[in-house]
Design a binder for these strands. Structure first.
Lengths: 136, 136
DNA sequence: GTATCTGCAAATCATTTGCATTCTG
DNA sequence: CAGAATGCAAATGATTTGCAGATAC
């Protein structure tokens, strides 16, 4: 039977509150400030569990280690080719419906059973664009 | 100045021919049969280079290590939640255009500069579906 | 009281790097 | 010959695992 743990609570809570997509290491460092006895293994263990329960999402990054996302609103990710950061892009009801319909249609072409889809947009984010402009 | 290497040639050639999406390790094992002196570091070095040159693509997997893809035709990936394998899904000219247009439109919402997008469909592939049916 | 969860340290897995040697232009 | 590329072994980085002690129910 699943038991309560303060560690799991603050991990989930923190991921829901923050708007970035931290690595396990980053999250660990930040949480260690408010709970110094916290161990990195506990963070990894809980992140894996929370993903399995569908409460958070693991985001694969092109460059560095995996990122974790606690944003509960339906969204897709924009990954910056320069800094590697992720930005959430929110979709309207219509966009979501449209997307899922076309995805489902595509899936039938391989006779596979479609469940959901992940879309990663790639490009340069606002922040890096500004930096690039300044450097030039 | 870039120099020819037999190793790079067989790595690229093999990736273009095969229809799966092997890990570096798998590719290494297979190529070692025809070139026993091949080293794993050489495989990784060349895979990284070939990706940078845009001749192949690195595919991030939900489960295991990175996969590599030498399929030159425009396609997106279907990732099986059970076996972790990838299947290529081909798109028509119209679908590609449509997709890029809607992606570009989404990107403007975050004031980021869109370059290209990656779409991963998720579900259960034909092979696993059959296995599942047999087990039941 | 017992199963679950933790923190730590050690282990594992994937990938990268240093370096002496070999190959290409 | 000079610079590039290789193979090997060692190093690194991220994540997982084993285990003894702490915690929840």
């Amino acid at each position: 039977m699943k038991k309560y743990s303060k560690q799991r609570e603050i991990i989930l809570e923190s991921l829901r509150e923050r708007k970035d997509h931290p690595t396990a290491e980053k999250l660990f460092m930040d949480l260690k400030k408010q709970m110094p006895e916290l161990g990195i293994a506990t963070v990894y263990r809980n992140l894996t569990e929370l993903c399995e329960e569908g409460l958070i999402t693991k985001v694969k990054s092109k460059k560095g280690p995996d990122r974790y996302d606690g944003n509960e609103l339906p969204h897709i990710h924009f990954e910056c080719k320069k800094c590697g950061d992720f930005i959430d892009i929110y979709l309207t009801e219509t966009q979501i419906k449209q997307m899922h319909m076309s995805m489902k249609k595509l899936s039938t072409e391989v006779e596979a059973e479609y469940e959901n889809s992940e879309i990663y947009l790639n490009g340069i984010c606002k922040k890096c664009k500004k930096i690039a402009e300044k450097v030039v």
